[in-house]
């Protein structure tokens, strides 16, 4: 770039704005982390954190990690999220394969229909699903929860997977046919690695959506299956957990998904380098 309009004041302006924006984005976390290391007494006493020094303590984390309901909820959430993701990926791939490749009457209609479903707010679907699950005696079970989350995710993921299949260049698929992989299953095995990035995106999206969900988790799970987010809601509405402990719980709950998001972002950048996306 030959133009030298980068005056010093402009550079400073950019950095200041960037710092402000980053501050905006990160401050809840930063404060949350600090709070989780405070003791409740210190927290409540004014003035609050930035204006006084504090001595960090690990008590909150120790408490939370050993607090059975929380740990159970953490594990259950992980279980549900992983299972849902697997289910959606497998079922979605199969469905996307059918939609992308086979010609049957009403195929286009079915496809558009699936997308339209997604427009409906989740609650509208939740109500009948809860009724259905109750009739199937699956309410308040892990399986029921997995199904519920799958309903939330399957349409969009399938739609996305169809896009992925269609983006594989036709001549490579033909080369595969010539080279001996006309069996559908092995066609699969070759196609998926070709669109590694898209698959990863779907994986992360599924996991994050399931992990973060509150409404479905709170409604489908009542007593036996208490997932993480409902538990945190409990902490927030109940009086038994202290704010500092709540903060610790919050930080711990975010770790998996935030980590995934950061990994995803790196993949995105790598993907852009290869000219893969959007």
């Amino acid at each position: 770039m030959a133009y030298r309009k980068r005056t010093l004041s402009r550079r400073i302006g950019v950095y200041v704005c960037v710092l402000l924006v980053l501050g905006f984005i990160l401050s809840p976390y930063l404060l949350g982390i600090v709070t989780s290391f405070e003791s409740e007494a210190e927290l409540v006493g004014r003035p609050p954190f930035p204006f006084k020094a504090i001595t960090p303590v690990l008590d909150n984390y120790i408490y939370i990690l050993s607090y059975m309901p929380f740990s159970l909820a953490f594990i259950d959430s992980a279980l549900v999220a992983v299972t849902t993701t697997c289910f959606v990926m497998i079922a979605g791939s199969m469905g996307a394969f059918a939609i992308a490749h086979l010609r049957f009457r009403g195929r286009n209609f079915l496809f558009n229909f699936v997308v339209v479903v997604y427009m409906l707010p989740a609650l509208a679907m939740l109500i009948p699903i809860v009724v259905l699950l109750k009739e199937l005696a699956l309410l308040d079970t892990i399986i029921g929860m997995v199904f519920a989350h799958s309903v939330l995710l399957l349409p969009l993921m399938t739609w996305f997977l169809v896009g992925i299949y269609e983006s594989v260049p036709a001549d490579i698929l033909e080369a595969l046919q010539m080279d001996g992989t006309s069996r559908i299953r092995s066609l699969f095995r070759e196609v998926i690695p070709l669109s590694r990035f898209g698959f990863f995106l779907i994986l992360v999206f599924s996991f994050v959506t399931s992990w973060n969900d509150l409404m479905f988790a709170n409604t489908v799970g009542i007593v036996s299956v208490k997932l993480l987010q409902p538990r945190i809601l409990e902490f927030m509405s109940g009086a038994r957990v202290m704010h500092t402990q709540m903060a610790a719980a919050g930080i711990l709950s975010s770790l998996p998904v935030v980590a995934l998001a950061i990994v995803l972002q790196r993949q995105i950048i790598a993907g852009i380098m290869k000219g893969a996306i959007k």
């Binding site: 260049p169 001549d171 033909e174 080369a175 010539m178 006309s182 070759e190 070709l194």
Partner: peptide, 20 residues
Amino acid sequence: LPPKDRDLAMMFQSYALYPN
């Protein structure tokens, strides 16, 4: 017969090499 059973090989204009 499907392509793979015809004992042919085809070279495509775009080469169609498996990129990964």
